[in-house]
Simulated assay, not measured.
Amino acid sequence: MPDHKDLPLTGPEVGSLWMTYQKMTMLLQMMKHFAQTSETPGYHQFLAGQVGEIQSFAEEIRNIFTGDGIIIPVGFTDQDVDLDAPALYNDVFGVSWFRIMTKVMMGMSVLHLGEATRDDVISYYERNLTYAKKMYIASTKLLMENSAFAPGPVVTPPQEVEFVQSKSYMSGTSLFQKTRPINTVEVLYLHQGIEINQVGAELMTGFAQAAREPDVQQYFARGKNLAYSCIDTFAAILKESDIQPAMSPWGRTTRSTRAPFSDKLMMYCTNLLSGFSLGSNAIGTSFSMRTDLPMKMTLIAAQIYDFAKDGGKLMVKYKWMEEPFQAEDRAALLKT
C-alpha cells in the first residue's frame, strides 16, 4: 500500500472524519463540565481522565485535515461550555451518559473503519474503537461497583434447543390466539431501548431546565416526554411476558438552571442520540420474530424521526447546523 502522504483523503474518509470531529468536540466540552463539577472521588477520577484522551482524538483529526490542506471544521469550542456553571447533573449521570456515548462511538468507529482505505485513517479508527470498548467496560464496572447500574432482566436458563414448529410463532397480539412470550433476542433490544431512553429522559430534563431559547426549551421538554413514552411501551411488552424491566438509578438532574452548555451543543447532542436511537430501533425491528413488535417499534421510530426533523429545523433557524463538506458544484463552476 502506498504511503498515506501520497494518497488524498477520499470523500467517505473526509465525511467520516468530519462527523467524528463534531462528535468528539461536543463530547470534549461536555466531559469538561462533568469533570469540573464531579465531587465523588472515584467518579471524578474517571471523568477527568477522559478529557485529555478525547482532546487527543479531536487534535488528531485537525492534524490530518491540515496535512491535506482541508479547512478545520468549527465543531464545538470553549465557547460552548461554561466551566463556572454549577453541576447540572450528579456524578452518576455523568458516567452513565458517557457509557451510552461509548456505545455510539463503538458503532460509528466500526462504520467509519469499514470505509477507510488510507493507513492513517484506518489507524485512527482502530484506536478510536479500542478506546471506546475499553471505556465502555470501565464505565460499566464503575457503575456496578457503586450499585448505580442494573444489568438486564434475568430469564429462566434454557434447558433444551427448540425449533419453530408453526407460523403462529411469528404472530403478535391476536383476539383469537394466545401471544407467545418474547424470546431473549427480543428482550435484548427492548432492554437496550429502555436503557437509552432512561438516560435520554434525564438528559432532556436538564437541557430543558437550562436552555436559553424558549422554543428550544419546549423542544427538550417534548424530548423528555417522548423518551418516557418509549420506556413505557418497551416495559409493557416485557411485563406481558412476566419479565420485570431492569431500571437503573441513572443519576439525577440538579436544581441548577444555569446552562453549562450552549443551546447549539445541547441541540446537536440531542440530534446525535436521536439518530442512535433510530438505528438501534431499526436493528431491533429487523431481528424481532413477533409481528406486533416491529409495528410498535415502527410507530416509535416515526415519532423519533419527526422529533429529530423538527430539531433540525430549529438548528437551521438559529444557524447552529454546520454543513458537512460539499462536493464541487460543477454546474455553478461552468456558469462562472
Score class of each variant (00 low, 15 high):
residue 79 Q to I: 05
residue 190 L to I: 13
residue 276 F to L: 11
residue 84 D to G: 12
residue 239 K to T: 15
residue 12 P to S: 00
residue 129 L to D: 09
residue 119 D to E: 15
residue 68 D to C: 02
residue 14 V to Q: 00
residue 100 I to A: 15
residue 251 G to S: 10
residue 180 R to F: 02
residue 175 L to F: 04
residue 103 K to E: 15
residue 244 Q to V: 12
residue 157 P to H: 06
residue 87 A to C: 06
residue 193 G to M: 12
residue 235 A to W: 03
residue 314 L to C: 04
residue 141 K to I: 04
residue 291 T to I: 07
residue 41 P to F: 02
residue 122 I to K: 09
residue 131 Y to M: 12
residue 214 P to A: 03
residue 106 M to N: 09
residue 301 A to E: 02
residue 62 R to A: 03
residue 98 F to A: 12
residue 145 E to H: 04
residue 88 L to A: 09
residue 68 D to K: 03
residue 141 K to Q: 11
residue 150 A to C: 09
residue 140 T to K: 13
residue 193 G to K: 11
residue 281 N to M: 10
residue 273 L to H: 10
residue 250 W to A: 12
residue 78 D to V: 09
residue 167 K to F: 05
residue 115 E to L: 05
residue 227 A to I: 09
residue 134 K to V: 07
residue 14 V to D: 00
residue 147 S to M: 11
residue 188 L to R: 09
residue 100 I to V: 14
residue 299 L to Q: 13
residue 282 A to Q: 02
residue 272 L to T: 10
residue 265 L to W: 02
residue 42 G to S: 09
residue 336 T to K: 09
residue 170 M to I: 12
residue 327 A to R: 04
residue 140 T to D: 15
residue 97 W to P: 07
residue 143 L to R: 13
residue 13 E to W: 00
residue 177 Q to T: 06
residue 68 D to H: 06
residue 125 Y to P: 02
residue 200 G to L: 11
residue 83 L to P: 07
residue 205 T to H: 05
residue 168 S to L: 04
residue 145 E to V: 07
residue 291 T to P: 03
residue 309 K to F: 08
residue 226 L to C: 15
residue 37 T to D: 06
residue 28 L to D: 01
residue 42 G to Q: 15
residue 70 I to V: 00
residue 179 T to W: 03
residue 118 R to S: 07
residue 241 S to Y: 12
residue 105 M to R: 07
residue 315 M to G: 08
residue 200 G to Q: 13
residue 227 A to C: 13
residue 162 E to F: 10
residue 332 A to K: 15
residue 227 A to R: 12
residue 318 Y to H: 15
residue 308 A to N: 11
residue 158 P to W: 08
residue 72 I to Y: 00
residue 7 L to H: 12
residue 262 S to Y: 12
